[in-house]
Write a protein that binds this DNA or RNA. Structure first.
Lengths: 205, 205
DNA sequence: CCTTAAACTTGCAGTGGCTGCAAGTTTATT
DNA sequence: AATAAACTTGCAGCCACTGCAAGTTTAAGG
């Protein structure tokens, strides 16, 4: 699932930790996908993963975290790309290209995302937590764009507006991608959504 | 808060229910605003409101519900307005005008909204739940627009895209409104955001 | 006015998420 | 081989939340 980060000093210990963590998220996803989120207890997940329930909470702060996991890994890369692109083109276009990094990561992780989606679809209570972590990421990007424009984010609404609307557009594309179970390319769907945004959301046809 | 709905058959019982409900949300808002959401227990709220903690759960399904309350009351009115406007103008413009109904309701309820905002700002865990209930409303509006366009919502991304992005724009405006503590008119902020959307989110200035 | 049925409140007991603490056990360090 | 650090675990406990079985209040009909 999550590839090993660069050349890390991996002793038996860190290895086992990764292993345990993966076993926990795996068990959580599997169980929740088949039974539904609240028909699964932390004890169930821990037992399936072969650790105590107390240990579960050494790895995750909540049951939800085990399911949603770290779906924000690519944010740093996206932000770096954005920093490079912003000075050379309009904000909206820079964001569109930066988002393609996330698109690539998601398309590479297809199966994992579909499984996660299955769980979230079954148990919509999880959706909020997903939105929250996104919100945090959005705030950072907003500040980045505000700095680029030399604008006070509090006084000027533009940075927050761009980030919020593009995020919404991205989520729309992702939703279409998943309901189509990957029959369409996520990249193409994202492009379509961003084009509509750039055109001012005119009525279709 | 919520004005009495039309000519209702209000006996002592229903009256007391309204009273209790208001006391609970009031206590919840007050306590959470001063102490923070998770420094307040359901027992605290119930005691402050003068009922048992068990009764609390007869009124609200969760502690969060008591704080967030019914912030979706005006949705029906908005949808009705939208139905009237859609055939006579572009979708985006119709949505903009329909949203003005919500704007009016919020501006009439200023103080309450600011208090709620105070709580949410202190305890961001609440923000997601807020977004979630919005999501439900968004789905309905999406279907409405899809029907108007004679489009299959699954096949065509436009309806969901318009709704998601305009909702995001609205939230941005609302956030600015609240951080400015009402120094700016919510209506003006919403108009500004929608204008930017309609123009394709060009770089400012 | 009085009776009866429905609605509302409440205590109680119990489940499950989640945390701090104080062992014990495993792994890294010298 | 000895010591320190990290990891796991059981335990005791808090709190959100629920079902159940009273008790109490209000509405409705005679």
């Amino acid at each position: 699932m999550t590839p090993v980060d660069q050349d890390a000093p991996l002793g038996r210990r860190d290895l086992r930790k990764q292993q345990t963590r993966a076993a926990l998220t795996g068990a959580a996803l599997r169980l929740c996908a088949s039974r539904g989120f609240d028909q699964v207890t932390v004890d169930d997940i821990s037992a399936e993963a072969g650790v105590s329930s107390r240990t579960f909470f050494n790895y995750f702060a909540s049951k939800e975290d085990a399911v949603l996991g770290d779906h924000l890994v690519e944010v740093d890369a996206m932000r770096a790309r954005l920093a490079v692109l912003l000075p050379t083109m309009p904000v909206l276009e820079a964001v569109r290209r930066a988002v393609l990094l996330v698109v690539a990561a998601m398309e590479a992780d297809r199966d994992h995302w579909f499984l996660r989606m299955e769980v979230i679809h079954r148990s919509p209570q999880l959706l909020p937590r997903l939105v929250l972590s996104n919100a945090e990421a959005e705030r950072g990007t907003t500040e980045q764009i505000a700095a680029h424009l030399d604008a006070d984010p509090a006084a000027h609404g533009y940075p927050a507006l761009v980030v919020a609307t593009t995020s919404a557009a991205f989520r729309c594309a992702a939703t279409r991608w998943m309901t189509a179970r990957g029959a369409l390319s996520l990249g193409a769907l994202v492009d379509e959504a961003f084009s509509a945004l750039a055109a001012g959301l005119p009525d279709p046809d």
